[in-house]
């Protein structure tokens, strides 16, 4: 099995196994710097994108600045 299922911003998707967060962001087209990521409700610092691998059934949140009170 070379593909895994993950949930990104509440949408299910299929990815190749062994993808790093950096590779995932490139694949999805995230280019700007103004976002942050959590995997399974745990923050992943930008410095760990290259070394953090996406696992099967992971839940990712990718967030950016928004209006707030």
């Amino acid at each position: 099995m070379t593909a895994i299922s993950v949930r990104i911003n509440n949408e299910m998707t299929t990815l190749p196994r062994g993808l790093s967060v950096s590779a995932l962001l490139t694949r999805l087209g995230y280019q700007q710097q103004n976002f942050a990521i959590a995997i399974n409700e745990t923050f992943v610092p930008r410095s760990q994108y290259a070394t953090t691998l996406i696992q099967a059934d992971d839940t990712l949140e990718i967030v950016a600045p928004m209006q707030g009170g």
């Binding site: 995230y30 928004m66 707030g68």
Partner: peptide, 17 residues
């Protein structure tokens, strides 16, 4: 300010920021 989910290519967050 706050943080909300954003898909790739969505410029709303950048414009606001």
């Amino acid at each position: 300010v706050s943080l909300r989910r954003q898909s790739a290519g969505d410029q709303a967050g950048k414009t606001f920021w």
